[in-house]
C-alpha cells in the first residue's frame, strides 16, 4: 500500500501550472462560481482538448486543473479504486504538471476527483469532490433537443422524468435505475448525479463538502454547494431505495459499504469486495 501522502513529483518544464493556460482557467473559474450560485444548473463552458480522450474524465480534469493549488492534496478514484488505469494516469498527470501531492487516503485529500463513486469515508467541510460526468443532461434520453431541455429546466417542468419513473414501476414493479438516479437539487433543478450507484445518492444530501461536476465532451459544469438539499426523485408510495448487494465484503467484512461483484473463475465462483479500496484497506489496518 502507498504511504498516505505521496511525495511531490518533479514538475514538468514547459507547461503552465496545472496544464491549462490562465485565460482558460479564468473562464472555467467563472463558470464554477455561477454553478455554485445556481445549484444544479448546468453552466456551459469552452472545454479544451486535453491530453486524454473524451470519456476519460476530461471535464473533471479541467475542473480540477482550475481549482488546484500547490497546497492541495489530490486523490483520484475510478469506481472507488485508487489503483485503476484512469485514476493512476490522472493522478500522475497532476503530479507532473502541477507538482501537487497526491494520496489514496480520503481523509488526507483536499480535492477528490471521482469517476462514478462517492467515497465511503464521510467528507468534511473544505474538501472538494470533483465528478467526471459523461452526460450532464438528466432529460437527455427523454428529450434529445438541448433547446427544449433548457426550456424545461427554466420552467422547472420535470414531468417527463416522473412519467419515466412511473413507467418503470408499471413495468417492473419498482424504479429500475441502479445508477444515475436523477436528483432534485435545492428543490429547484433536476440534476444528473453522474453514473454513481443509487447507493451513493443519499451521501450528496447536505454533504459538508463542495461537489463540482465537469462534463468535457458535453461542455457543462454544475455544482452542489455544501449543506444543500439533494433529493432522489421518487413517489410517496414508492420511496427511493438505494441498492446494495446483500453480502459482506470478502476482505474487510464490511456490511455498510458498496460492493463490487468479482468473478473469480469460470465455474461460477465469485466474491463481493468493497468498491472503495481506501476504505477497505483502512478497515484491514493497512
Amino acid at each position: 500500500m502507498n504511504i498516505p501522502v505521496n511525495p511531490v513529483a518533479e514538475q514538468l518544464a514547459g507547461y503552465n501550472f496545472a496544464y491549462l493556460d490562465e485565460a482558460t482557467k479564468r473562464m472555467i473559474r467563472r463558470a464554477i462560481l455561477k454553478a455554485v450560485a445556481v445549484p444544479g444548473h448546468q453552466v456551459p463552458f469552452g472545454a479544451r482538448e486535453m491530453p486524454l480522450p473524451y470519456g476519460w474524465g476530461t471535464g473533471g480534469i479541467q475542473v480540477t486543473a482550475s481549482i488546484l493549488g500547490p497546497r492541495d492534496v489530490l486523490k483520484v478514484i475510478d469506481q472507488g479504486a485508487d489503483d485503476t488505469t484512469n485514476a493512476v494516469s490522472i493522478r500522475r498527470f497532476f503530479g507532473r504538471v502541477a507538482g501537487v501531492r497526491t494520496t489514496d487516503r480520503t481523509r488526507e485529500a483536499t480535492i477528490v476527483q471521482t469517476r462514478h463513486r462517492i467515497p465511503e469515508t464521510a467528507l468534511r467541510e473544505g474538501q472538494v469532490l470533483v465528478y467526471q460526468v459523461p452526460m450532464p443532461e438528466p432529460l437527455f434520453r427523454l428529450e434529445p433537443r438541448v433547446s427544449e431541455t433548457t426550456r424545461l429546466h427554466a420552467l422547472g417542468d420535470y414531468g417527463l422524468m416522473q412519467v419515466r419513473l412511473y413507467e418503470d414501476i408499471v413495468k417492473h414493479g419498482e424504479v429500475a435505475t441502479a445508477y444515475n438516479h436523477p436528483v432534485m437539487v435545492n428543490a429547484r433543478y433536476l440534476m444528473s448525479p453522474s453514473p454513481i450507484p443509487s447507493f451513493d445518492n443519499p451521501k450528496m444530501h447536505m454533504n459538508p463538502a463542495l461537489q463540482l461536476f465537469g462534463a468535457g465532451r458535453e461542455k457543462r459544469i454544475y455544482a452542489v454547494p455544501p449543506y444543500t438539499a439533494v433529493q432522489s426523485l421518487d413517489f410517496e408510495d414508492h420511496p427511493f431505495r438505494p441498492i446494495r448487494a446483500p453480502h459482506a465484503c470478502a476482505l474487510c467484512n464490511s456490511t455498510e459499504s458498496y460492493l463490487d461483484e468479482v468473478i473469480t473463475d469460470d465455474q461460477g465462483g465469485r466474491m463481493f469486495v468493497c468498491s472503495d479500496t481506501d476504505y477497505c484497506a483502512e478497515r484491514r489496518g493497512e
Binding site: 501550472f17 481549482i67 488546484l68
Partner: peptide, 9 residues
C-alpha cells in the same frame, strides 16, 4: 489568481 479564486469559491 488561484488562491484568490479559491477564496471566492
Amino acid at each position: 489568481a488561484q488562491s484568490a479564486f479559491r477564496a471566492v469559491l
